[in-house]
Design a protein around this nucleic acid. Structure first.
Ligand SMILES: [Mn+2]
Ligand SMILES: [Mn+2]
Ligand SMILES: [Zn+2]
Ligand SMILES: [Zn+2]
Lengths: 146, 146
DNA sequence: ATCCTATTCAGATTTAATCTTAATAGGATT
DNA sequence: AATCCTATTAAGATTAAATCTGAATAGGAT
């Protein structure tokens, strides 16, 4: 049997390490994010709490997302437009994105070697890596016609 | 003797390939960007044209930057706050950035291996790479105290 | 000269994200 | 239990980065 898929352990650990509390609102947000399978932005997440038991303010959502990022519950993602997108780091694990500048299509890719090189480079500078944002822009197969 | 440092050739080539004109404004913007040594954002670039011969509108600046990106005259960069930052790809060549989430310090790094792996990954998907944005977030040496 | 299309201008508009002020929660102290 | 104290949140106002709109301009083609 697997470990619980969406354990708040890492999140709680981060909060504790920062002297922050695992409040009702942070629980709620963690929980909502945990079962999201797709890319999402802060505002759409906020909207999800409307009509649910307790209302959660937009600001609380915006303030909680960086904490979830830092605890590796979510990662930066990619989406249409200028909004910041996120996604849960689920069973498919961490990955990065290619974005077609013509049609907006988003392709996910994984590259363990790049991840390691990143870590190595950070170490060279004495930099402690917490998360990253790696996006490749260009033209997808379908948009290269010819 | 070196080739002209800030030749508009690549930029002009891109414009031509897209059926766009090398207008006075695009010339001016190219020229201004060409001698910028530091990271900059769209609005600060726009401000630079105030008090110079001809006024250039904010919109023209915003519309020209993606063209400069695509022709590899500039690259995405990193800066404080939420603005998009850019910088000329000059003699130090292409590089990426680490950003300290505590003090905001920005460290530049280069990694030829990562660049190659990126290209390889793109090819796997039939994706034609034009530019990328690779930023590492974490804590710099000075901010890890202890 | 007239037409035609791409481009630019100036300023209005949009809206993602942050800020402000007051209310609330919940633990510590008496 | 009542009071105090600090962290946190709510609600809505505000900011400002980027885009949009509609009119003016440039410059090539006919
Ligand atoms: Mn993804
Ligand atoms: Mn740089
Ligand atoms: Zn495409
Ligand atoms: Zn730092």
């Amino acid at each position: 049997m697997e470990a619980a898929k969406h354990s708040p352990a890492q999140f709680q650990a981060l909060l504790e390490s920062k002297g922050l509390k695992y409040t009702y609102e942070r629980k709620m947000i963690f929980d909502e994010v945990s079962h999201l399978k797709e890319h999402f932005d802060a505002d759409s997440l906020y909207e999800r709490f409307k009509g649910k038991g307790r209302r959660i303010s937009r600001d609380t959502v915006y303030r909680t997302l960086p904490l979830l990022l830092e605890s590796h519950v979510i990662q930066k993602s990619a989406g249409a437009g200028k909004r910041e997108f996120f996604e849960r780091i689920g069973r498919k694990g961490h990955h990065d994105h290619m974005i077609c500048i013509k049609c907006g299509k988003i392709i996910e890719f994984q590259c363990e070697e790049i991840e390691k090189l990143q870590e190595k480079k950070a170490q060279e500078f004495g930099f402690k890596l917490t998360f990253h944002d790696h996006r490749l822009f260009g033209t997808c197969k379908d948009c290269q016609h010819g």
